[in-house]
């Protein structure tokens, strides 16, 4: 996990791919670290000083940024990291969960229950059939009919309808 070179202790931490921007930012600002994705699943964090406390902190941070939640899908139960959920969509009587890895799960839980469960995280109901993760909004475009169009980091476009506009604004302003 670590090695030293020329008297200076250098270390590299190999973590599950850090997809959380907040964590990457924190690693950079608090520990002056450089992160680098080495493949689709792993991220290398380079440390110029192998300090056990720091490593512990980082590992804690990285793992703390994972909050797993069980969802009942049509194919059984699945344990998902809620920070990786992009948005949820209900269509007809099905609810679809889209994650940031472009994977979609068909859930059996109704949307209003999911809204309740996710409300303490960064999720907001934007229309009768959509709940989105605020962290993954790239741009908010004002439309002429008093609606908003959200462009997600994934490129998907979601609409904030008039009746949920106030709620959306309120969540952002908090």
């Amino acid at each position: 996990m670590g090695y030293s070179e020329g008297g200076v202790e250098m270390a590299k931490l190999l973590l599950d791919k850090v997809k959380d921007e907040a964590l990457i930012l924190k690693l950079r600002t608090s520990y002056n670290l450089i992160t680098e994705d080495i493949n689709h699943t792993q991220t290398v964090v380079s440390l110029d000083n192998l300090d056990e406390n720091v490593v512990t902190d980082i590992v804690n941070l990285a793992s703390g940024n994972k909050e797993m939640m069980l969802f009942e899908t049509t194919d059984g139960w699945v344990n998902l990291n809620i920070y990786e959920i992009n948005y949820l969509e209900s269509y007809l009587d099905q609810v679809y969960l889209h994650d940031i890895n472009q994977q979609t799960y068909t859930l059996k839980t109704p949307l209003y229950q999911l809204e309740e469960r996710l409300s303490k995280h960064d999720f907001v109901r934007i229309s009768i059939s959509f709940i989105c993760n605020i962290k993954y909004i790239r741009y908010i475009k004002t439309l002429l009919n008093q609606k908003l169009e959200l462009t997600m980091m994934s490129g998907d476009k979601l609409i904030v309808t008039r009746s949920y506009l106030k709620n959306f604004k309120h969540t952002l302003m908090l």
Binding site: A22, L25, K26, I134, R138, I140, T142, T151, K169
Partner: peptide, 28 residues
Amino acid sequence: IKDSIWLKRLNKYRTSESLKPIKPSHNI
């Protein structure tokens, strides 16, 4: 103007959540 107000709100939120502020891309 409305867009920029919304962008400001979004960035404020992101900052409070320790996220990097967004600069809208040229395409948008």
